[in-house]
Structure formats: C-alpha cells, structure tokens
C-alpha cells in the first residue's frame, strides 16, 4: 500500500517525475532522521546528566558520600542498586518512544514532513 504511494518504479516513467518523487521522499526522510535524532539525543543527554550529577554530588558534597542508608553507605546503595534500574528505565522509555514514532511513520510520509 505504501509502495503505491511512493510509486513502484517503471522504466518508462519520465526521469523528472522520478526526481520529484525522490525529492519529496528525501524531505520526509530528513524529517524522520531529525525526529529519531531528537529522541536519541534526549536519551544520551539524560545519561550524561545522571552521570555528571552523580559524580559531581559525590565528589563535591562530602556529607552525601558519608551518609548511611540502614547501615550501608549511601554511595554503595546508589551505585549498585539504584542506577542500574534507572538505565533500564531510560532504555525502555527510549525504545517505546522510537517504536511509537516508527508506527506513526506511514502517515507522516503521506502528508510530507511535519
């Protein structure tokens, strides 16, 4: 169905029409790449923010690195138990958002770039 939209190539079709279709598709693709890149950079930015915040807090705030949770030093609790589920959640959210974006894609293409 989508194939029909873009037009299955036929050798007899004029080069001009092919090029126009190419350009239209190219714009759509650029929009897709931008949308994907936005999601990717958001996720990477969050990862960087978590890492910078964690390291900065422990490095610069002595009270935090000396704190205890139920007798276990806070840094150990955070670094072994809290951060890994956080990574999982970030990855999971990213995949969900990508898949939603990709499900919407046919509509996005038929209407051209947003």
């Amino acid at each position: 169905m989508k194939r029909g939209l873009v037009g299955a190539p036929r050798r007899r079709r004029s080069q001009v029409r092919v090029r126009e279709a190419d350009e239209e598709l190219d714009r759509a693709v650029r929009a897709v790449v931008r949308a994907q890149l936005r999601l990717a950079l958001t996720t990477c930015g969050l990862v960087a923010a978590v890492l910078v915040l964690l390291t900065a807090t422990f490095a610069l705030v002595p009270a935090v690195r000396a704190a205890d949770v139920l007798g276990v030093p806070l840094p150990w609790v955070v670094l072994t138990i809290v951060v890994h589920p956080l990574w999982f959640a970030l990855a999971w959210t990213h995949v969900r958002r990508c898949e939603r974006l990709e499900r919407r894609l046919p509509t996005l293409r038929s209407n051209g770039p947003p």
């Binding site: 996720t43 072994t80 951060v83 990213h94």
Partner: peptide, 24 residues
C-alpha cells in the same frame, strides 16, 4: 572500594547510549 563502582555504571550506561545512537 567505592571508587571502582563507577566502572560497571559506565559500562551499563554504554548500552543505553548504544541503543539510542547505534543499534537500530
């Protein structure tokens, strides 16, 4: 001790970045 706990954090974060930028 505690300073070494950054290594696994970084290695796991590598997979989050991998999924965002490279995998698909």
């Amino acid at each position: 001790g505690a300073d070494m706990l950054w290594y696994p954090i970084g290695a796991a974060a590598g997979y989050v970045v991998l999924i965002a930028l490279v995998t698909a």
